[in-house]
């Protein structure tokens, strides 16, 4: 590898570690101008930064905002490289596709948004539908994008029953166990997750990533 290339990859990783979207996009553009294969830019450059922050986070050294900002910088860089990937007919390998939503009647989403960010940072392709989502919207999107996981959030005991309705509907349509279901939210307990036959639950975003990896059979990744 030329010294120039090595420096560029290092700068790419650093832009992610610094959580600087402006610089990560700039470097992605530079790599296109230099005719560097986009997959190389991602795997040899940006992903190195994501992995570093992920490791630091695992060690308790990095804080959540650093992880979020690294995720944003990564997303911005990949979006810049995406058209080039498409031209070449290449696709970035992901851990799997996830649809996230807060169930119908509920507008609370901070926890779900965190889960989305952490999943993205861990290599999942996340479609976050937002809040107050009825069953048909959630299921429709999961079918449309070929999701491996549906994640549902609820903060109220009066809305968490909707999680069960979505699961029952998915069963009726024969979508499980191909599509796995994970649930979360402040009132959600292991007992509830078991009762409604979800494939898993987590109390926090870190646990949700581990769960998602287990559900797609990449628990050791």
């Amino acid at each position: 590898m030329s010294e120039e290339l090595e420096t560029l990859f290092k700068q790419m990783a650093q832009s992610i570690i610094d959580g600087d979207s402006d610089i990560s996009v700039e470097l992605a553009q530079k790599s296109i101008e230099m005719n560097i294969p986009p997959l190389d830019a991602i795997t040899k450059g940006f992903v190195v930064g994501v992995n570093y922050i992920g490791d630091q986070f695992g060690l308790g050294e990095a804080f959540l905002p650093e992880l979020v900002m690294a995720g944003e910088a990564m997303k911005a860089a990949v979006a810049t490289l995406e058209p080039e990937l498409l031209k070449l007919g290449e696709a970035r390998e992901t851990m799997g596709k996830v649809v996230l939503a807060t169930v119908e009647g509920d507008i609370h989403e901070i926890g779900k948004t965190l889960v989305g960010t952490m999943l993205s940072a861990s290599g999942f392709e996340v479609t976050d539908l937002g809040v107050d989502q009825p069953a048909d919207k959630i299921i429709g999107k999961a079918i449309e994008i070929g999701a491996s996981i549906v994640g549902m959030s609820a903060l109220l005991t009066t809305t968490m029953v909707r999680q069960r309705e979505v699961i029952e509907e998915m069963d009726k349509e024969g979508l499980r166990p191909k599509i796995k279901v994970m649930v979360g939210g402040a009132p959600i307990t292991r007992e509830w997750a078991t009762k409604i036959k979800a494939d898993g639950y987590s109390e926090d975003a870190v646990g949700a990533v581990k769960l998602a990896k287990d559900l797609v059979g990449k628990g050791d990744a």
């Binding site: 986070f57 308790g60 804080f63 959540l64 402040a186």
Partner: peptide, 9 residues
């Protein structure tokens, strides 16, 4: 304050 490491309540 959310927990700085995990964002937890």
């Amino acid at each position: 304050s959310s927990d700085p490491r995990t964002g937890a309540y």
